[in-house]
Design a protein around this nucleic acid. Structure first.
Lengths: 228, 228
DNA sequence: ATTTGATTAAATCATTTGTTTAATTTAAAA
DNA sequence: TTTTAAATTAAACAAATGATTTAATCAAAT
C-alpha cells in the first residue's frame, strides 16, 4: 500500500502523454472525489468538513463517496497520506542529490517550497494540525528515519563537522531550522497580516526575499556553530 | 471589551494573595467552564469539540454553558482571545524592555516560550490553525501594528542597522525567524518524533539545547546580513 | 420569610451528518 | 440484441449534536 503510493506519486508525467490524443480530460469520478476531498479537507480540516461539502465540490452524488471510499475516515487517511508524499517528494530528491552542496540544497528547497506553498497555502497547517491525531501510525510505517540518516545531506553535514567547519549538532536541528524558516511564515500568515496590516502582495514579496535570505542565514548559522 | 481583557490578563498575582486565607480554591463555575473549554478547544479544535465534552471536562451541567456564555461560538471566541493574550503577554513585556539588548531579548523569549509551550504543547497549533477562520476580525481590532513599530525592539533594530552592524531588512523577518525557530519544532513535533523515532524526553532535551542555540544563531544571522 | 440567583436533570426541537438502500441508468460482455 | 455488471442517483435512516426550555432544588442575601 505505502510502496504503491510512493511509486505512483514519484512517477510523473506519463499520464498526460498517454491521454494527449484520444481521451482529452477524461478524469475518473474516483479522482474527482479525491481532488475535491483534498481541497475541502485541506481548507477546513477533518472535523469541519462534511461529506456533503466534498460531494458538492466534486459536483457528484453524495453516495459515491461511500461507493468508492468506504467512509469519510478512509478517504481522509488517503488524502493525508497523498498530501504528505506530495509534500515530501521534492525534499526526498533534493536531499539525496550528490552534486549539490549543503547550501545549494537549502537554496533549492527554499525556492521550490516557497513557490509550492504559495500555490497551496493551506497545505502546511493541514499536515501539521491533522498530524496530531492521525499521522502517528502512518509515520511509523514509513522508513523516514532510515532514509534521513542515510541521506546525502546528513553525510555532508557530518563531513562538514569533521572538517571542523561547524560544531556537531544533531542534524534534526538543521532540518527544523530550514523548514521552520520556510514554512512558519506561511502558517503564521493570518496573524502576521492581521497584526501588521500587510497586504497579500506584500507578504508574497517578503517570501520572495526569503528565498535569497534563508540560505545566507543558514550559512551564517554554520559559522556561529563553528566559532562557539 | 478588548481593553478589559488586556487589563485583566496583564495584571497578575493579586487574586491568589486575596484568597490565600479565607476562600481556599474557590473557583467560580464560570472559570471552571472557561478552563475546561480552553483545554478541550486547544486539544481538539473548534469543530471537533462538542459542548458536552466541555461540560464533562468541567464536571458541570451542560445547561451552564448556555447559562454563562450564550453559545459555543461566543465561548470559543473568548477562549481564543484569552489564549492569544496569554501567549502575547510575555512578548509584549520583553519587547519593550529598555534595559536588555536585542540578543538578550531573544534569550529571554526563547527561554520563556520554550518552557511555556512545553507545558501547553497544543497552544501554538491551536492559535495558528484556528486563526485562519476566526481571528481576522479579532486581530484588526488590536493595535498590534502600532505596538510593534513603536516597540523598543524595533527601535533597537533600526539603530543597529544605522550603525552598520546589519543590513536593514524588514523587522517582520526578524520576528518570523525568532518565533519560527522557537515555535515550529513544537508544531512539527508529531512528525519529527514519528519520523525520527525520537522519544518525548529526547525531544524536550533538544528544545533545551535550542534555548542556548537560538540566540547564537540569531546573532550570526545579523552578521551575515552585515557582510552581504 | 421572601426573594433572588445558581445549579441540576430531563426533555424537546430542529439540524446536521455519515451511511445505507433500492431503484435507475450506463456501459460493456455475451 | 440480450444480458450482466458496474456506475450513478434519489431518498431515507438513524444517530448525534447544539441550543433551548422547563421544572425542581438549593443557597444565600434581603
Amino acid at each position: 500500500m505505502y510502496l504503491y503510493l510512493c511509486y505512483s506519486i514519484l512517477e510523473v508525467g506519463n499520464k498526460e502523454m498517454k491521454n494527449k490524443e484520444e481521451e482529452q480530460e477524461k478524469v475518473s469520478t474516483e479522482d474527482k472525489i479525491k481532488d475535491a476531498a483534498k481541497r475541502v479537507f485541506q481548507k477546513k480540516g477533518f472535523a469541519a468538513t462534511r461529506t456533503r461539502d466534498i460531494a458538492e465540490e466534486a459536483g457528484l452524488n453524495l453516495s459515491l463517496l461511500n461507493y468508492y471510499f468506504r467512509s469519510k475516515e478512509k478517504l481522509f487517511e488517503l488524502i493525508v497520506l497523498e498530501t504528505i508524499f506530495e509534500f515530501a517528494k521534492s525534499l526526498i530528491i533534493v536531499l539525496n542529490d550528490e552534486d549539490s552542496s549543503i547550501i545549494q540544497k537549502v537554496e533549492i528547497v527554499a525556492d521550490r517550497y516557497i513557490d509550492f506553498i504559495k500555490t497551496q497555502p493551506d497545505l502546511p497547517i493541514f499536515i501539521l494540525s491533522e498530524s496530531r491525531f492521525n499521522i502517528g501510525k502512518v509515520m511509523e510505517n514509513l522508513p523516514i528515519k532510515e532514509f534521513l540518516s542515510n541521506s546525502v545531506l546528513v553525510r555532508q553535514l557530518k563531513e562538514k563537522a569533521q572538517r571542523g567547519e561547524m560544531r556537531e549538532v544533531n542534524y534534526v536541528h538543521f532540518i527544523m531550522n530550514v523548514m521552520g524558516l520556510i514554512i512558519f511564515p506561511f502558517i503564521a500568515q493570518p496573524i502576521i497580516m492581521g497584526g501588521t496590516s500587510m497586504s497579500s502582495e506584500e507578504f508574497i514579496k517578503m517570501m520572495e526575499e526569503r528565498k535569497v535570505l534563508i540560505p545566507i542565514w543558514v550559512e551564517a548559522m554554520f559559522k556561529a556553530n563553528k566559532l562557539q
